[in-house]
Design a protein around this nucleic acid. Structure first.
Lengths: 201, 201
DNA sequence: TCAATTAAGTACCGGTCGGTGCAGAACCCT
DNA sequence: AGGGTTCTGCACCGACCGGTACTTAATTGA
C-alpha cells in the first residue's frame, strides 16, 4: 500500500491498478460475473486484455479482487455497523448502510454480492459459491454481535441471535433487490423503518 | 387448452410441449436467463434446437413462456394470498408461499424472477426489464390489497399501504436470496415470523 | 395415390467468449 | 553498453454462443 516502491525491474505499468480495479468492480456490480465480458471489463478499465491478464491473472481472480475491494469500500458498512453500541443501533446502521450502498448516485444499483452470481451456469460455480460464503459470513458476524448483545443484556434473554441475524440479512438482500427494481433511498429507508417496528425491546 | 384438437395437418409433434416448457422453466430457474444455454435447455427438454425454435420462437420467447408458467404455477401463491380475509393474513400467506416456492424439495432454490436476470449484459436488457416489471407488478397488487384493507378498517387509518407492500416485497426477495444461500423452509419461516412482529394491529 | 403441411435431424452460420504467443518497448542492474 | 525483466499491442486460438438452411419423415385432406 502507499506509493509503490521503485525497486522493481522491467517496464513500469502504465495504468493505475487501483483505478482499474475500481472500474472493473463497477462493471461486475452492474453486469454480474457472467454478464461482464472481458471486452467490457477491459474497456472500462482502459487497458488491453493482455495487461489485465498480466496484472490480475484471469477473469475469476479479477472478480475476487473486485469483491475484496467491494468489501473494504462500498460494503464496509456491514463491518462498521457491528461497532454500534446496541443491537438495535447495529441493525439500523446495517440496513441504512445497505440503502446507501445499493443506491449510489453515480453508480450501479443493487448489491454486487447479490447480483454477482445468484444463478449462473456450471462453469462459474466457483464464483457462485464464493458469493454464497461471502453473504453467509456477513450473517454469521451479525449473529455473533447479537449474541453478545444478549449476554450484555442489550437484547432480551429469550431473543434468538441467529434468527434476528437471518432476518436482518434477509432485509438487506430485499433492499438490494428493491434497489435494483428502481426504488430510491427515501423509499428504501421507509422499508427499513417498517422492518424495525417489531424489533425486540 | 385441454387435449389438442386433431385437425392439424402435417407431422405431429413428438414431444409434450407442456413438459418441455416445465423443464425449460426449471433450467432458467436454476441458471438464470443468460446462464442457461440453448444446449442445456434443449438437453433438459429432451428435444433438438430445431424443435425448440419451431415450437417457441427463440430463447427470449421461451423464457417469456417459462415466466408465464412460473407465475401460474410456483408463483401462484402471490395471487392466491390476496384473497385472504385480512391484511395480516395476506402478508403471512404471501411470505409463507414465498418460502415454499423458493425451497422446493426436488427443484432449484430461490425465485426465478430474482435469479433470472438481476444483473445482465446489455443484450438481455429486454428480459431484465421484463423481470423488473414483473416484480414491481406484484408489489402494486399487494399495495392495492392493503389499500382496500385500510378502507375496510382492517388496517389502521394511518397505515401506509404502499410502504407495507414494499416492505413485504422486500421480505419476499430477501427470503428468495436466503433460500439461494442454502437456508431451509424451517429457518425461512422463522424469518417470516420475525418480520411480522411489527405488523400494524 | 399424391400434393400440402408440419416436425425432426444434421450440418452449418457468423459472432463472441475467455485466454495466449509473440515481438517490441521501457525500465532495472551490472 | 548490454543483458535481464516486465509491460504493451497485435494477432490469433479453440470452444461455445444463439440461430438457421436444408433434407427427410410423418401426417392430413383431396
Amino acid at each position: 500500500m502507499g506509493d509503490s516502491r521503485r525497486a522493481v525491474m522491467g517496464r513500469p505499468r502504465e495504468f493505475d491498478i487501483d483505478q482499474a480495479l475500481e472500474r472493473a468492480m463497477r462493471v461486475f456490480w452492474a453486469r454480474g460475473y457472467e454478464g461482464a465480458s472481458l471486452a467490457e471489463l477491459t474497456g472500462a478499465m482502459g487497458i488491453s486484455k493482455t495487461s489485465m491478464y498480466a496484472a490480475f491473472g484471469n477473469k475469476e481472480q479479477l472478480f475476487r479482487k473486485a469483491l475484496q475491494r467491494y468489501g473494504a469500500g462500498p460494503a464496509a458498512y456491514a463491518t462498521r455497523a457491528l461497532e454500534e453500541p446496541t443491537a438495535r443501533a447495529v441493525a439500523l446502521a446495517f440496513l441504512r448502510g445497505a440503502v446507501c450502498t445499493t443506491t449510489p448516485p453515480g453508480g450501479p444499483s443493487g448489491c454486487l454480492t447479490v447480483q454477482g452470481a445468484l444463478a449462473s451456469s456450471d462453469e462459474s460455480r466457483a464464483v457462485h459459491d464464493l458469493l454464497v460464503d461471502w453473504r453467509n459470513d456477513a450473517g454469521v458476524r451479525l449473529e455473533e454481535r447479537f449474541r453478545r448483545a444478549v449476554n450484555e443484556g442489550d437484547l432480551p434473554r429469550n431473543a434468538d441471535p441467529r434468527r434476528l441475524a437471518r432476518f436482518i440479512m434477509a432485509m438487506g438482500f430485499g433492499i438490494a433487490v428493491q434497489a435494483a427494481n428502481g426504488l430510491g433511498p427515501a423509499e428504501l429507508d421507509e422499508i427499513v423503518d417498517t422492518a424495525l417496528l417489531g424489533w425486540p425491546a
